[in-house]
Design a protein around this nucleic acid. Structure first.
Lengths: 222, 222
DNA sequence: CCGTGTTAGTGTCAACCATACACAAACAGG
DNA sequence: CCTGTTTGTGTATGGTTGACACTAACACGG
């Protein structure tokens, strides 16, 4: 069933930069392309916007379809609209980025493990289309947002230690942080609270466990 | 000549929030719609993305076509993609915002004066489509950016006094500023320089004129 | 059971930055 | 030459940020 217009229309997709932090490294989810163009190359998860769904809803749906992840923090990043982004037809991509916590790492069971993988940013392969550019911009936005909001907490599992949290901030934003100053800072923001439990691991003093006061909520600082 | 696709495609437009500052007020350029839908209502300037031009280029072109303004600061704002934004067909809008200096206020000679006008933000009429939402977001972005960059300078004519500049900052970001502190601050940023000329107007001490060191350049602060 | 190694947890002081604040200088006009 | 008006300038204070070192709690091995 063909669809006909009096003027040419572009196709519109969403592409999603899914970030997580694992083993002291910021990682991005990539999918190996199964068809042309760029067959076999790594690309961002994403897909075409359906005619009756909002662009936001498309991003949510694609994220779930390709990764099985639901209820994840998702924010629009930027729209990429160069006419030759895609060789098949004119495609405009609305890019989003998502942050998933350490614990929700299970990828969609349906997908072959070889076709979806977490890559450390900084060691990325050449990506399909202009997806390299998209990742670069997403990374810049994320590091900027780490400085003036509490997005960093979204990478954390339900409960965590302040040392874990400090480690996360250091790996994502690069910058090392002083232990005492970091703790003063994060506690003064009034966004985490003690769970009352301790995490005993290894031959040393056990650490207090914390949780977000309002899970999923992002606070803008200053 | 019809254009046919195997899947339905949305139309894509750009809409532009053009800001200026005039007589102590932040203003937005609005155009009265000449055809349905929302005929006669006020709306943002903008139009459909052509199939062979980039989305950025479309914004530049529309800005020039509808206002005659060229070489203006223009930045992508956000993409609005709700399925029922437009009653005619599915339309996704990539919104931009632009800042024009006081001196370049001449609107396109072709346009009837009654059909294009500067409106003070805060006193806007009900706008067509979701353009009200777009303006709100643009305003938020602008005030935020005033705090951590030198975008404010883009509203200034080629030469200006520091008092003028302070007045501009006060009207755009609301917040009043201390005269001495403002001058210390702006001078420490190293973005303006004295022209050597003075502006004598009225029965009082003439003010030193300044200009941007690198016109059109926006510096990120801190 | 005691010593060792390892991470958790805590306060103070100095440097820097942001803010508040008042008066002389330069001009036009009467 | 007096008045009214806007320009232009420095200092002191309070708050914020950043540097810095030792004790607490535990597991393990001897």
């Amino acid at each position: 069933m063909p669809y006909t217009y009096t003027h040419p229309h572009p196709a519109v997709t969403t592409d999603i930069v899914v970030f997580t932090v694992e083993t002291q490294a910021l990682k991005v989810l990539l999918i190996r392309r199964k068809g042309p163009p760029h067959e076999g190359q790594w690309a961002l998860p994403g897909g075409f916007v359906r005619i009756d769904e909002s662009v936001d809803a498309c991003a949510v749906r694609e994220l779930e379809e390709e990764t099985g992840l639901k209820g994840i923090y998702l924010e629009q990043l930027y729209t990429f609209g160069d006419p030759d982004r895609d060789t098949r037809e004119r495609v405009i991509s609305v890019a989003y980025y998502a942050l998933v916590p350490l614990q929700g790492l299970e990828l969609r069971s349906g997908t072959d493990a070889a076709d979806a993988a977490w890559w450390t940013v900084g060691g990325l392969p050449v990506l399909a289309f202009d997806h390299g550019r998209i990742v670069t911009m997403a990374r810049a936005r994320l590091t900027a947002k780490m400085e003036y909001s509490t997005v960093g907490l979204l990478f954390m599992p339900d409960s965590f230690t302040l040392s874990d949290l400090q480690g996360l901030y250091e790996t994502v934003s690069g910058r090392p942080r002083d232990k005492r100053n970091f703790r003063k800072w994060i506690l003064s923001l009034d966004v985490v609270e003690e769970t009352g439990e301790r995490k005993a691991e290894g031959a040393h003093r056990p650490a207090m466990l914390y949780r977000m006061k309002t899970p999923g909520n992002v606070k803008i600082i200053k």
